[in-house]
Design a protein around this nucleic acid. Structure first.
Lengths: 199, 199
DNA sequence: TACTGAGTAGAGCGATCACTCAAGTGCTCG
DNA sequence: CGAGCACTTGAGTGATCGCTCTACTCAGTA
């Protein structure tokens, strides 16, 4: 395609980037295609060329893309063989910083849409479920590698997830990072306790 | 008004009931006024008579009403002088049952709308924040009364909230009650540990 | 030069959106 | 009875929704 155009980004990616930001901030129904098109400097024709299924297909693809980005983020914070207790603490601190820096707009790229469409669109619900599941798998694997039993590793991963997602919700609603800080301390304590259990 | 009409419910309440169910399931933007009107068997005029501010005022009132109902629910599960560890366990079990019985549609009456409007409508964000805060206050008070220190009581209340809200999100998305069960076990353990701390 | 296919462009479509408003209904008063 | 008030009714408004469709640009190829 392009050999030296390091700055230019193709239209499909621009649309996906714009929809990712808008969907997570305003939700699925709250985001119009016109807004996405304007933000990505694209036309209707391009959107329907890349996403023939329309808004729903675009949103599912956006959820998948957001899921991958966040999974890689978790992998970056939890490197193989690293200290999972410290990683947990640092992860929550990073989340608090990000939420505050974006004025409580950007938190989870999936949650807002997931709640909105869970009882409405099976295709989108599944895309969200796969994203969440991929994060849980990374966490579970790291916890297992750190010596936590298989069963407990899954549980601790779920508890980690619930803590961060609940904290995101409360933080954005109250406009305070305190819930994320509290949830972070609690979660790293939970991970530490699980590590200390007899395997 | 009415002396013996035990079955009839006034229009304002019917509208609020219908909007409560629809908003929590489909979100704010995803719910049209026509759908609310049809579900509550009311007309446009009635809606704008009781909520002159239109959809936004209706949604704020709906959030407030849902907040009260849920606060009373928490108070019912956590009676004064009761066993807070057991109450936590039973609360999560009840939540799991409710979510499953409604086919993963009804969980938190606030969360879906809160995430959607947190960065969009200050009036609605505040209504959601007040609802959440009222739940936290009930939990915090009960934990304090049970002997947990003031600072820890607030933290445990926040952790409780994050656990249940995160579990609701994961449960509805995965269509499984397992996250709620796991979060319930973890939360009651957290409460028990806080009780055991030196006051 | 002519052709092809990938991608762009945006006017226009019917449907639906939140909302307004003038004309009601039925109840409680004097 | 009739005035006044609380509430209801639903057709109509302009705006915006997701989406379609035809026409277009332009690089690559023969």
């Amino acid at each position: 395609m392009s050999l030296d155009k390091s700055k230019e980004v193709d239209t499909r990616t621009r649309i996906l980037d714009a929809s990712g930001e808008l969907f997570r901030r305003r939700g699925y129904s709250g985001t119009g295609l016109k807004a996405i098109l304007a933000a990505s400097d694209a036309a209707y024709g391009s959107l329907y060329y890349f996403f023939p299924g329309g808004k729903e297909e675009l949103a599912a693809a956006t959820l998948r893309a957001g899921g991958v980005v966040y999974r890689e983020l978790v992998e970056a914070f939890f490197p193989e063989g690293g200290d999972v207790v410290n990683a947990t603490q640092v992860f929550f601190e990073g989340a608090a910083t990000m939420v505050e820096m974006t004025d409580y707009a950007d938190a989870c790229p999936i949650a807002t849409v997931a709640l909105e469409v869970a009882s409405t669109s099976e295709a989108m619900r599944q895309a969200a479920a796969e994203a969440f599941e991929s994060w849980l798998e990374v966490l579970e694997r790291r916890f297992r590698e750190a010596g936590i039993s298989s069963v407990r590793a899954r549980e601790v991963a779920v508890e980690f997830f619930c803590a961060i997602e609940g904290a995101f919700l409360l933080s954005r609603t109250l406009r305070s990072t305190a819930p994320i800080v509290i949830a972070g301390r609690a979660s790293s304590a939970v991970v530490a306790a699980a590590l200390a259990e007899p395997s």
